[in-house]
Simulated assay, not measured.
Amino acid sequence: MPRQAYVNGRYQPHSDAAVHIEDRGYQFADGVYEVVPVYNGILVDEDLHFDRLDRSLAELQIEEPMSRPALKLVARELMRRNGLSNGFVYMQVTRGVAPRDHKFPKDSRPALVLTTRQMKPHSPQVLAEGLKVITVTDQRWDRCDIKSVSLLPNVLGKQAAAEAGAYEAWQVDGDGMVTEGTSTNAWIVTGDNKVVTRDATHSILNGITRITLLELIKAEGYSLEERSFSVAEAQEAREAFLTSSTSFVLPVTQLDGKPIGNGHPGILTGKLRHHYMDYMQTLRKSA
């Protein structure tokens, strides 16, 4: 069976899936999205993802396209049709179709799209050598806590990273402090073994993997600080890593061409990745 997508109430071949040219997501980036990881056939932290989707919709005053139980059924049916066991479910909600006008339309219905993608495990080379990261100026709007489909600054940052031979770009605010990556949260481990990541304000997207890892860090008794850190502090850190729904926990060993620590993935980073992978295994056992 060809790959399927779900568009506004219909399952259809992915190659034929389309939305109207006056969909406000297309014309105004007037919409939000979620990426829910799938690990061994299980939707990881799905309720946390749905909670964030609901919050993003509420912040933009977009109605929910369907109830949460119904949306869960759609996601699982699409996984079944596409044979998805490891990868992610992408879901996007826009304000819907209406004649082009900046103000909210009065009679549009939210548009809902779901797709899936298979993903391979991270390569042994990445885990053994770590990732290169560059820094870019954070050019985004002031509500980065909303998971909006308006991602042009993120796209430009990711492209800059690719052109520099790096995996990711960490964005830096006007005070020289790291906010987050273009699609990841940023973390460092200080010389005295404190795990540091920026606190969840409007300046960053509060990643679901970030939320879960914070709980695992606390449960394991590691020292933790939620605060800003500078590029200079990151370059002087003992370790660094990044998190996201598709990266899980991955080591960062180079920042702007300078090695972090000894230039190899850190011991604590490896432990945290192990804790997170164990956590996902427990989800499968309890499903």
Rank of each mutant, 00 (worst) to 15 (best):
Q139G: 02
I260H: 10
E22H: 14
P13Q: 00
S244H: 04
G257V: 12
T116E: 04
G165H: 07
E64F: 10
N206C: 11
A166T: 08
A200C: 12
T179I: 01
V195A: 10
Q61V: 14
A70T: 14
A162P: 00
N193Y: 07
T246I: 11
K194W: 12
G221E: 07
N82M: 04
Q118C: 12
Q118V: 09
F229Q: 09
T209S: 10
Q27C: 13
F241M: 07
E63W: 00
L216T: 09
P265F: 07
T253P: 00
G270E: 07
E225T: 07
L71D: 01
Y33D: 06
R24Y: 03
I62T: 01
R95Q: 05
R10P: 00
A29Q: 02
Y222W: 14
L78I: 08
H275K: 05
L242M: 15
V19D: 01
M277W: 02
E77N: 11
G25K: 06
M119N: 08
R210G: 11
K120Q: 14
V44D: 00
S244D: 03
R198K: 14
E180D: 11
M1V: 12
G176C: 06
V89G: 06
D107I: 03
K194C: 12
T116I: 07
V126N: 03
V74A: 06
R273T: 04
K194I: 15
A29H: 09
M91F: 13
A58I: 00
V149Y: 00
D145V: 02
E233S: 11
K120M: 10
K132T: 13
H275V: 01
P110V: 09
Q27H: 13
N206H: 14
T253M: 08
T135D: 06
D51E: 14
E236N: 15
R81Q: 14
H102C: 00
A240T: 06
P251C: 10
L255K: 11
R55D: 11
V7N: 08
I134M: 02
G221A: 03
L71M: 14
R117Y: 04
R117S: 15
R140Q: 13
T179C: 10
W170T: 02
H49S: 12
S244M: 02
K147D: 04
K147L: 01
T116K: 09
A75G: 06
V172E: 06
L48I: 12
A5Y: 08
S183N: 07
G87A: 07
T201D: 12
W187G: 04
R109I: 13
Y26V: 15
V7F: 04
K258D: 10
R100E: 05
L43W: 03
G266D: 02
A111T: 15
E168S: 08
M66G: 05
I211Y: 06
